[in-house]
């Protein structure tokens, strides 16, 4: 899909917010794709992390928010220990999640989880998923 890039299309506020929340410089990434190659959840992502970073570099906020990548990321840090440019990608993913969550939008609804699931799950699974996927 061809996209047009101009100073008008770059969402600078998004970029500033992303870098402030994550503490990462997305322009450090040189698009090697090691992150996606290391990602255990990659096949379930609509776009691999490399592409998300590229879109972030271009300030494509709306397009990034439409993709499921940040919600499928399990913050396992495989990409983080392998990134040759030292980009802490799980922090970038967390920042993208927070931009949605902090507007009071949940990715999962705790009240809608089946009782059986809640009963069998270890507490750490519940706490961790609510921490990462709810506002």
């Amino acid at each position: 899909m061809p996209i047009k890039i101009s100073p008008k299309t770059v969402d600078k506020k998004f970029l500033e917010k992303l870098e402030r929340l994550s503490g990462q410089k997305v322009h450090q990434c040189f698009q090697c794709g090691t992150c996606g190659g290391s990602c255990p959840m990659g096949e379930h992502m609509e776009a691999l992390p490399r592409k998300i970073i590229h879109m972030a570099q271009l300030g494509m906020a709306e397009e990034i928010e439409k993709l499921n990548t940040c919600w499928v990321c399990a913050a396992c840090h495989s990409c983080n220990v392998r990134c040759p440019r030292g980009v802490d990608l799980p922090r970038v993913m967390e920042a993208i999640r927070l931009m949605t969550l902090r507007k009071n939008n949940n990715y999962i609804e705790p009240s809608e989880l089946p009782a059986e699931t809640v009963k069998e799950c270890p507490q750490i699974a519940l706490v961790a998923s609510f921490r990462k996927l709810t506002s």
Partner: peptide
């Protein structure tokens, strides 16, 4: 050292 899917067992 691969991730087991972690808390995504609930989300995904």
């Amino acid at each position: 050292d691969l991730c087991c899917g972690s808390y995504q067992i609930l989300g995904n």
